[in-house]
Amino acid sequence: MFIFKRKPRLSIVLIVYKMPDQAERTIQSLSSTYQQGVSERDYEVIVVENHSDRLLGRERATKHASNVRYFHRNETQRTPVHAINFGAAQARGSHVAIMIDGARMLTPGIVRQTLDVFRMSANAAVSSPGYHIGDKLQQIAVNEGYNEEAEAQLLQSIQWPQDGYRLFDIAVLSGSCQGGFFQANYESNFIAMSMKKWRDLGGVDSRYDDFGGGNANLDLYKRLLEHPDTPFYLLYGEGSFHQFHGGVTTGTLKEERARIYKLLDDQDIVLRGENRKPPNVRPILFGTAHPSAYRFIRHSLDKVSSQ
């Protein structure tokens, strides 16, 4: 195992389950050869994989960088929440970023800009908007035949990973981020904070023990952004891009998805009551936008002007 000469500033916890090809691309997008303006000494990637019949495995998880640490777990419940809390407990950094879904590739400036924010404001919360690869939300596209082969063609069309910002050219905002950049959305797949704040929040709520963790990520996001003394910085020019992998909420057909959503919603009501609106905070927009992201800025302005 790679031994760090110094502790990294940021620990990125990435959860993997039954998505080996997608997870490897995500890890590649987290490597210092892809991320701009950082070195492997600045951050670490903690990959936690729950056991399945489609394993990523240590060899593939660590092939792109030496700052990746891999853990394989035999999870007994159908949820990633225990893996998240386990991964965060392994963190060496003063700050931690949570990626509940290992199938989401990142843009090349997200690590550097996260570190820049924490240099200015150690108590901040940092997140990036979420996107789905394709011309419509994947939970809709799957009913029209969208699959991994169609997505591979899209990635080939932009010659990924040559320019990671071209992911914007083949994507749409995820359902939880339809409100745009000028207000807090429902969640993010890149949620960063200090380790002190993570401990204050008690990590991810382990009671979310159903399909894919249910709304555990939305709950964490809301609790963090509404936590006292937590300025919220949105990396509006960066993003996480969901790859199709047959996931619970994006890869199942309409009838089955509706049934699962009902179960997850019922559990969320039990745990959070009716207080399930997006976090009541406004983001501080941080960073710069690649031209490919301009159309999403226009979308965000339209959302504000229509209110």
Rank of each mutant, 00 (worst) to 15 (best):
K196G: 13
K277V: 12
F2H: 14
R41V: 09
Q90Y: 04
I260D: 01
G213H: 04
A83T: 02
L234S: 09
N147S: 15
A65R: 04
S176A: 14
S174I: 10
S176H: 13
D135V: 13
D205M: 06
I3Q: 13
Y221G: 03
R166L: 10
R223G: 07
I158N: 04
Y236F: 15
T230I: 08
N67F: 01
D101N: 14
R92E: 12
F286E: 00
Q138A: 06
N123R: 09
P8L: 05
M99Q: 11
C177M: 14
R282A: 14
S194V: 03
Y146N: 03
S300C: 03
D302K: 15
V47I: 11
K303G: 06
T26P: 01
G134T: 11
A89W: 05
Q183L: 11
E59F: 07
R69H: 10
C177H: 15
K277C: 09
Q139M: 14
P80C: 05
G145F: 07
R9V: 15
L56A: 01
H51Y: 09
S306C: 10
Q35I: 05
G237K: 02
G273L: 09
T250Q: 15
V248R: 02
Q77S: 11
G109N: 12
S29G: 06
P291E: 08
L225R: 10
I284C: 09
Q183V: 14
F182Y: 11
P129M: 10
A293N: 11
Q183R: 15
A293K: 07
Q267G: 11
A293G: 09
D205G: 04
Y165W: 11
W160K: 04
M105L: 13
R199H: 15
S52G: 07
E256Q: 14
L137R: 09
F4C: 08
S52D: 06
F2G: 07
G145C: 10
R166D: 10
K63F: 00
V204N: 05
K277D: 14
Q77E: 12
S174D: 15
W198G: 00
E44C: 06
R276F: 02
R112A: 12
A91K: 00
Y131F: 15
L235C: 04
G37R: 08
E75D: 14
K18V: 12
S94T: 13
L173H: 02
S11T: 00
M195R: 10
R73L: 09
A171N: 03
N143Y: 12
E274A: 15
F244T: 07
G175I: 12
Y70N: 02
I297N: 00
Q153C: 06
S39F: 02
A88V: 12
S176P: 07
